[in-house]
Design a protein around this nucleic acid. Structure first.
Lengths: 239, 239
DNA sequence: GCCGATTTGTCCGTATGTATC
DNA sequence: CGATACATACGGACAAATCGG
């Protein structure tokens, strides 16, 4: 059960939309109706709805109502959306996940690394390379750097399971915000070595900096995706 | 001058961050301070700040303050973020824009088009193909479909300038929300014909459905980008 | 370790404006 | 025109996290 009221309402509405209790192009109940349904103030309803807007689930129309624009997605691709661990993404995409750790090392950030990652020069880092398998196929080559001071006791064993479970569960860290860039890059020797790229010579590359709830950038990630299977989803609003 | 208070405050803060009056890792003034600065309620301040959070400009830290995490971007790439016309993107990236209309036709959506675009079968559409040049280089191949009933009087001449200026200016339409998907696809004959792809055999493809403020999906877009120069930016928050 | 001051987070009630029907 | 519905804004109350003394 969610602690916050608005979050509970948000999740309830989201679930009702996903199960198509509220269908595409239908309107949600009016804000005043929901105030009585959920026994809360109108502000709280508006807050929950604004999250649905951000997710691209609904569109609110002044004077008319709030219309559902969510449509189920084609499950063929491996889609990426919010901040998710590989395990979580795999579960959402209904695929079987596996991870192989290629390299696990320690590293001190020099000028070059700092420019690329945003870590200050001299930062003590863990450097990890992993191959991600979905339904037995090698699809993603991951490069991670973690700030040692924020992620103490990280081991190859944990890297093979879920670093995020370790961070959030064992260490009690709260992951907050991720700034990402998506580009297309030519495949390297390493990519060809670990991914089954066939004749593909390009990869979809997602690079990101991740901040925790203390405002510290604790991770830099680069995920190199096999181009077929890759799909990045996004909702944007005007002005 | 913006009509809404929170919007004015948002823009003022945003500009101060971009010009680095508030620098990376610095804190904004506290909410109570800003209440006196901008002579408004705390809710209004919080609303403006929440927009900056959504933009990935700041991160708010409970009990501490609101920290700037904005950093200027490398101007080499052509970056994509919110909903923008090609002209607006070009201006923001400080590049000279030009457009060549390859095809301008009318079309009725059949089953295949409907599945791909989301328009209902039987919709009357304009079908446009355009090549986009930045600083004289052919970078993007655009395919647009517009719902005729919503975009009456569209002409090749307008398509060569700015369709969005026509929509928002002349027709008074308000563009609201865009749902997008980013994938990587193999280049077609057409791509090679109109874009200078050299030996690249893949493209970054952004497909999207765009809704206006009446809740009508009036546009389907597919933008096929030359892979070098392409950069898609995003900010995500956890849970 | 505790306490108080500061700061952000959640929630409420109300008033007024504006668009739709 | 009035009723309905969303949008903006205010002010207040209390909770939770942080920090310094």
């Amino acid at each position: 059960m969610p602690k916050m009221k608005f979050e509970g309402i948000y999740k309830d509405l989201k679930q009702k939309i996903e199960t198509q209790e509220y269908e595409f192009q239908q309107f949600l109940p009016s804000e005043n109706t929901m105030v009585t349904i959920y026994k809360c103030s109108r502000n709280t309803i508006r807050r929950a709805v604004s999250l649905l807007v951000k997710d691209g689930y609904v569109q609110s129309l002044h004077g008319k109502g709030v219309r559902v624009i969510y449509q189920p997605v084609d499950p063929a691709y491996f889609t990426i959306g919010g901040i998710e661990s590989f395990k979580e993404s795999a579960a959402r995409n209904h695929k079987k996940a596996a991870t192989k750790v290629i390299q696990f090392a320690e590293l001190t950030a020099d000028e070059r690394v700092s420019r690329k990652t945003g870590f200050p020069v001299g930062s003590e880092l863990y450097y990890i390379q992993r191959v991600r398998y979905l339904d037995e196929i090698a699809l993603i080559f991951d490069i991670n750097m973690f700030l040692k001071s924020q992620v103490p006791g990280l081991t190859p064993r944990i890297a093979a399971q879920s670093v995020y479970e370790y961070l959030e569960g064992t260490l009690g860290m709260q992951i907050d915000v991720s700034k990402r860039k998506m580009t297309v890059e030519r495949a390297t020797q390493i990519d060809h070595k670990y991914l089954e790229l066939k004749d593909y010579d390009f990869l979809a590359v997602v690079s990101g900096q991740i901040f925790n709830s203390e405002g510290i950038m604790f991770e830099y990630t680069q995920s190199r995706h096999r181009p077929d299977y890759f799909c990045f989803q996004d909702t944007a609003t005007r002005s």
